[in-house]
Write a protein that binds this DNA or RNA. Structure first.
Lengths: 265, 265
DNA sequence: GCATCAATTTCGTCA
DNA sequence: TGACGAAGTTGATGC
């Protein structure tokens, strides 16, 4: 059963009592407040007084949001101890996390609104498509998209210090170490491929080993480094792969937006 | 002037009107709702029906939060077009972003609570301490903390494909490329330093070049790779540097937690 | 606008 | 639990 309690423009005494009991009951709490914020832990920060949205989740996660932007200005991923106390005509909301030790303090001077919701239930599955492993899976099943005649030896082959996405053999019998990226490949991707190729060469001293970086695009610097290292780049159209992969798995359940929502609604 | 409007357990017609007008007025909107979510854009995702907190900021940022965890399950950093329509006994909240084209759809089947706050004001400054550049700045001013007799040649020296944090000369006249990390250094940090050292060697063929990774800690694998590459590791106490740097700039204003909050309150 | 790098990154996964 | 790599990473800076 979901219950909702709220206060509009409460005085600080009332707000303090309300927030304290909501925290104790592990409610989802949302406050629009005027406050200052201080954080000490892995980093350290101070934020002067202003209007913010403060969210406290049932699991102790705390978020402080300014009126703009996607990301919270301060936060606590999960807090082990939350205390709410009156101090000097204000409310001091303090969230402490251990390991790593981090303290987030919100000094509230005014409460525009506060709402506490109890009993929110969410056990739905979250499904993501079009991630890197999905693309690598598809390419491993269809290596011709990378190079004609390629034969996949292994998917996610462990090499020292990581995993090569795909290891294959080309028409001339040479090993091909393949690194797949779903976004523009940068220097990091080249270094990663280079490292895997070197490790693979070390482990297979007699073999000829090529390295191919498969990505929808590559930065200029990365391409320059890649070629200077004797490695290769192969463009792939991610959207096309996503579409094809979707077709392949259409028997295992519909994935269209409306079908999905209709199924659950 | 800050104004607050809200509805508790409204029917969907009332909620639809309320949300529509709040979006039009660029209010900060917070809803506790039962909903399904679909996203298509750089990636793609589906989330079945469940209870969530939906936040719409005045700048068009949209966040969907489940009852647990720090991060939103779906979001839109800023949307150019937000539409709210009734559809089949539900509310379809749709946020579209262009460049990159991304669509976030929230299909709301029940509204537990919705609040719209108008006129939130937040122009306070956000100050961060203890970040990497601060540490590198301090070390560049006090290179003796890394090695006795070190003389700094340059801070943030551009090398091909990146920047070396510090370049110095040691007592024997050898170049020292220094990479600074403020958290435990991993394999990536080693690869980064190695790359800069190699590039620097290439550009200064005749010179002797050392490489030092400066960090509060280093992983076992990273240390192993580092030594095998002929590079060096130097431990630094980040907290101590932070403290000393704070002392150095104490003339430019107090930074203690209470002082800061007292100043603004 | 692109490229690069840090982040209180967060988040999964695997040894 | 620690280490390592990916992220719809985000965000800032330099060119």
């Amino acid at each position: 059963m979901t219950t909702v309690k709220y206060l509009a423009e409460p005085d600080l005494d009332k707000a303090h009592n309300f927030i304290s009991s909501a925290v104790a009951q592990r409610d989802m709490i949302v406050m629009a407040v005027k406050c200052s914020v201080a954080y000490e832990g892995r980093g350290a920060s101070r934020l002067g007084e202003g209007d913010r949205l403060v969210i406290v989740k049932p699991d102790g996660a705390v978020l402080v949001h300014r009126p703009t932007g996607y990301s919270p200005v301060n936060w606590q991923p999960d807090s082990h101890v939350i205390t709410v106390e009156k101090q000097d005509g204000r409310i001091l909301f303090r969230s402490v996390r251990k390991r790593p030790r981090e303290v987030l303090e919100i000094l509230i001077s005014r409460v525009y609104f506060v709402v506490a919701i109890h009993g929110l239930l969410d056990d739905a599955e979250f499904i993501e498509y079009l991630d890197e492993s999905e693309i690598a899976d598809y390419l491993a099943r269809h290596p011709d998209l990378i190079e004609e005649g390629l034969r996949v030896v292994r998917r996610e082959r462990p090499v020292e210090g990581g995993y090569a996405d795909i290891v294959a053999v080309d028409k001339q019998g040479r090993y091909v170490v393949i690194e797949v990226k779903r976004v523009t490949a940068g220097i990091d991707a080249v270094k990663q491929l280079h490292r895997y190729v070197e490790m693979f060469r070390k482990a297979n001293a007699e073999a000829k080993v090529r390295g191919i970086l498969v990505a929808p695009a590559i930065t200029k610097d990365a391409l320059s480094l890649l070629t200077s290292l004797g490695l290769e780049y192969k463009h792939v159209d991610v959207a096309r792969i996503h579409k094809k992969a979707k077709q392949e798995r259409r028997h295992s359940g519909s994935l269209s937006l409306l079908d999905f929502i209709g199924k659950r609604g």
